[in-house]
Nucleic acid binder design. Structure first.
Lengths: 255, 255
DNA sequence: CGTTGGGTTGATCGACCTCAATAAAAGTGG
DNA sequence: CCACTTTTATTGAGGTCGATCAACCCAACG
């Protein structure tokens, strides 16, 4: 049987790829890098003051409502984004509706890293998202004149690649429980750059999103989390989990 | 139960990471880019004549025997390679011996793309391998002075990333038979750049390697190939398969 | 207060894994 | 060149982890 097929409608989003052109309060506003809390986490951290102000002039602030599309699979990409607030999911759909989430974006993450003309996956907002928007071609040209930034992006691409390979190991060779634990530990580590390393891991995505990220079903994810809670390794809190024994969780994964 | 655990010994390689320092006939020989058949496929294709001769002077020809290690997981990387002949497997091991193959390298592929100090995976030769060897730090410096090459590598990294994400979809959301068909079609497409698009797909890797790439067991891979052969979609030939009906195979995958 | 979208839990089923036997290659040494 | 071993691949029988199907809970919300 075919695993994890579900209705395309179930993943429907409220808007199309270029929906970010609709007007919002903040749309087309310039950005203020000086105030930006996530600058050191993002590509902008690689720039000196002059470069930063140049890049700043290319950037426009953008906002996406929850569930709004940021990219759509197989469609043209005309802008790239640096996420400053909120979270998004990146996923690919098979023709019959099976879905694989290939990643989640949180503040500091760059969307459209490959600068490809067409997106090979869809991205939509899990929560309201604020981002810096760059015209793709303008950004690409800027890059050609700024080897330091290009180098930084190259390093980020290498990092993404290693995360993707790690995810292959998780999906290909780990048990359901291990997958869930890897996911929670990995996500906590990523949030740490934004939140400090709190033991509370925000989960802005649904169980279905987690399942589609881990190659599992929603029921299996739910059961795994329940089991971990029963074993007092974590507690489920609104919109997340609190890890009670990070060390024992780590042991499940690399023991 | 834990899937696909096997003895570490079963994957043992005959040599350590820096075994390429042992002498061979061609070791430390200069390379001759003018004679290189795979130049247009590789990073070198991005260079003009001046740049190429500069890069040529950094390159030394290297040879690896079958099963010899090229990189080792968690160990220092002091050189990167451009494969000119042969094939290699890239894989990660879990502490208990479970293995995930994250990719296969064929002529034209670059090993060490991320230029990381430590390798996150192991690489060893499936067949005798010839490659251009570059000192990692020297290559990295060369890169800083050659934005065009950096850009090319950045694009290659983006391509690798999209392959890795595609592989996530395959492992996470496809059935065993689909995985095997995706693998054969995808590999054929990659060989096409080297061999022309022959319907014969060379398989220098073992069934175990394929299984570890697809998140399956060797038995499941074997059964899937047998089934495809029984259905006259392919025939098994020494060291490979011949695809009899590529169109129907494609249909299994994107139907 | 009915509806709707998540989430949890239970019972059953099946795709793939495990275990086992055999076959076919590929080395190896005499 | 041929026994002998070792490695790799195939095939079968049976077991299991996670999928499927289904019921139910709960909070949000118009």
């Amino acid at each position: 049987m075919i695993p994890a097929r579900h209705d395309l409608a179930a993943h429907g989003v409220e808007s199309t790829a270029d929906a970010h052109f609709v007007c919002h309060r903040h749309h087309h506003a310039n950005v203020d890098c000086a105030q930006c809390k996530i600058r050191p986490l993002s590509i902008c951290g690689a720039l000196d003051d002059d470069e930063l102000s140049e890049l700043e002039s290319l950037a426009r602030s953008a906002h996406f409502a929850q569930r709004q599309a940021i990219f759509s699979q197989d469609e043209k990409v005309d802008a790239v984004f640096n996420v400053t607030d909120g979270a998004a999911r990146l996923y690919r759909l098979l023709p019959d509706g099976r879905r694989q989430v290939v990643g989640f974006a949180i503040p500091g993450d760059f969307l459209g890293l490959a600068l490809a003309e067409k997106s090979i996956y869809s991205v939509d907002a899990l929560t309201p998202v604020n981002a810096c928007r760059f015209n793709r071609e303008a950004f690409s040209s800027f890059l050609d004149a700024r080897p330091a930034l290009l180098r930084r992006l190259y390093e980020m691409a290498g990092h993404e690649l290693s995360l993707a390979q790690e995810q292959m190991v998780i999906i290909g060779r780990r048990t359901a429980e291990e997958r869930v634990v890897c996911f929670l530990i990995g996500l906590r580590k990523r949030w740490a750059r934004v939140n400090g390393n709190s033991v509370t891991v925000p989960l802005p995505m649904t169980r279905q999103d987690i399942a589609d990220f881990l190659g599992l079903t929603i029921e299996t994810v739910s059961r795994a989390i329940s089991k971990l809670a029963r074993e007092k390794l974590l507690v489920v809190v609104p919109d997340g989990v609190r890890l009670l024994e990070p060390a024992r969780l780590e042991a499940i994964v690399d023991g």
